[in-house]
Nucleic acid binder design. Sequence first.
DNA 1: CGCTTCCTTGAATGAGCTCAACAATGGTGG
DNA 2: CCACCATTGTTGAGCTCATTCAAGGAAGCG
Lengths: 271, 271
Amino acid sequence: MNSAGSSPGADALVRKLDALSPLTDQDAATLERVVLAHARHARPREDLICEGDRPGGLRMILSGWACRYKMLEDGRRQILAFLLPGDSCDFNMRYVPRMDHSVAALTTVAYAELAPNVVDDLISSSPSVARALLCETISDASIQREWTVNLGQRVALERLAHLFCEIFVRLRLVGLASGNTCVFPPTQADLAAAVGLSDVHVNRTLQELRRAGLVELSTKSLTIPSLSALQAAALFEPGYLHLRHDRTESEASVSPHLLAEASPRQPESRA
Amino acid sequence: MNSAGSSPGADALVRKLDALSPLTDQDAATLERVVLAHARHARPREDLICEGDRPGGLRMILSGWACRYKMLEDGRRQILAFLLPGDSCDFNMRYVPRMDHSVAALTTVAYAELAPNVVDDLISSSPSVARALLCETISDASIQREWTVNLGQRVALERLAHLFCEIFVRLRLVGLASGNTCVFPPTQADLAAAVGLSDVHVNRTLQELRRAGLVELSTKSLTIPSLSALQAAALFEPGYLHLRHDRTESEASVSPHLLAEASPRQPESRA
DNA sequence: CGCTTCCTTGAATGAGCTCAACAATGGTGG
DNA sequence: CCACCATTGTTGAGCTCATTCAAGGAAGCG
């Protein structure tokens, strides 16, 4: 059923949810079917949801990158989170009348848009999916707290290093890193809006990270020669991501079975 | 049943949840009964929960102030949220094996500690409470996003002004503001850890706010002469709090029925 | 090829930090 | 009730990290 990569595919989605809370094969198949039946696309810079919109339903990223963001009246913009393949945009939001932030595509994005009744059917028919979505909510909240720490306590170099660690670990989790390299579409201006620094200073800090040999960041591609070195520079502790089997911890970061993208999911994650 | 203020009382809790999603009288009574049966106390600086702990259960603040916080290895400390009477510490956390942050009392705190099975009983027997707790989760996440914006985009004066607006509105909601004044226990060092500035700079920025007539902050007491003026200085938009009946919006901020602490809850909030 | 978007560099400015000392406050015990 | 000590708040001076403004170069796209 899941097999070879159909155009967008739901691989990332299944892998991510399974990493948060194990999915049964049956529920994973149901999820995949439902999601692929409601696939849509967005162009770069297009908003998937706007602040003030009535939420309802659930949007999940299948491929491409998006971001949560919020703007102040005077135009200042803060990116609140990067949404990667497998991430949900607005689970739970249906219990509240208005979106408090916006979500925009950074690249061309394939996503599933499930109507409220479809979501209800899914979570009542697939309890392991329901539970994983709940865990994703918890993980999201934790990530947001870590971003608060990032902006409040870390200096420029640490902030960027921390962001790179987080993104890389999350991408690797869904099979979108090969070795120590992953795609990285955000512009320096996007990075600046995410870490609360000016564009110019992000540029200079990136040069510093490059000079230190901690990252290689070229055209939409990020390479991390030594994840543990970057972790140390960033004071990055992956526990806040709430992933099962702590495959991301310190020395385990080079564990070979993690890097084996071949297998779509871990067999031992099933009942 | 709810009536006159018993020692800690659950008034704030009921008022807060009801403001997020209406409680039925019966569910409110159940909540009150359950909560008061599991009341505990913590002294200032005492941790209610520590990062790394196995969560399980649910803690709710009945009186006093607490805060979420996180520490980096080298001792830097970020306060992630202030927890006021009526706030829950760790709803949902039971789905995840470890706390990703700590919660500490700032003052003497009375709180309810509900064991997992008690929580399960409560939410299955009182659907309106369950829904309100869900809405609180959403509101909490939104507040955390707003804090990210605060640290990432606002300058020192705006940051503190925004924090004061948020705290005041939240306290007023649970009947803990009289007129334009409320208690305010955090020290300047606490404020600094919350807004990501140094103690010294917080001190100077507070003086600036005082000189501008925007706040009066003396011994554990905060007065806001003109909330709308402070809102404007902070670029504060209360929508992110997700409170029903937008009583907090702009000019409505002086609405008299909001300030009437006498009535424990709004009658029109019932079915 | 020409445009726009993105990246890079320089120089001057400023917001916020650190260090250090001191004043005020408040709680505690004698 | 007073004396003491710890915590909290206040002030000054120098410095640094980061911002702003401005301009030029590279790179992708139609």
